[in-house]
Amino acid sequence: MSDVFIALQTNEESRYIVEALLQDNPNAVVDEQPAMVKINVPGSLVLKRETMEEVTGRAYDLQEMQIHLITLSGHVDEDEDEFRLAWND
């Protein structure tokens, strides 16, 4: 099964995103690079609004994540509650 990944700029906001991603995806692997952090997950990845709201302590619109996003791989499927990345192989 191939990895999907998401890479974020290293900053205060993305710390929360990484934290939520680790909660929502127990098999996620974090790869720290200069000024960026890449999260690899086998097969598929999910980021839940609920988790983000819990982690940040405020209402969260998943589209906000785009501000900190650097790159990703996998098919994107997004609604109000979840942002998902997956391969179909």
Partner: peptide
């Protein structure tokens, strides 16, 4: 570079 790439994430999709 990273700011552009955040748009690229949309473009790649």
């Amino acid at each position: 570079g990273f700011s552009a790439q955040s748009d690229e994430a949309r473009h790649m999709t």
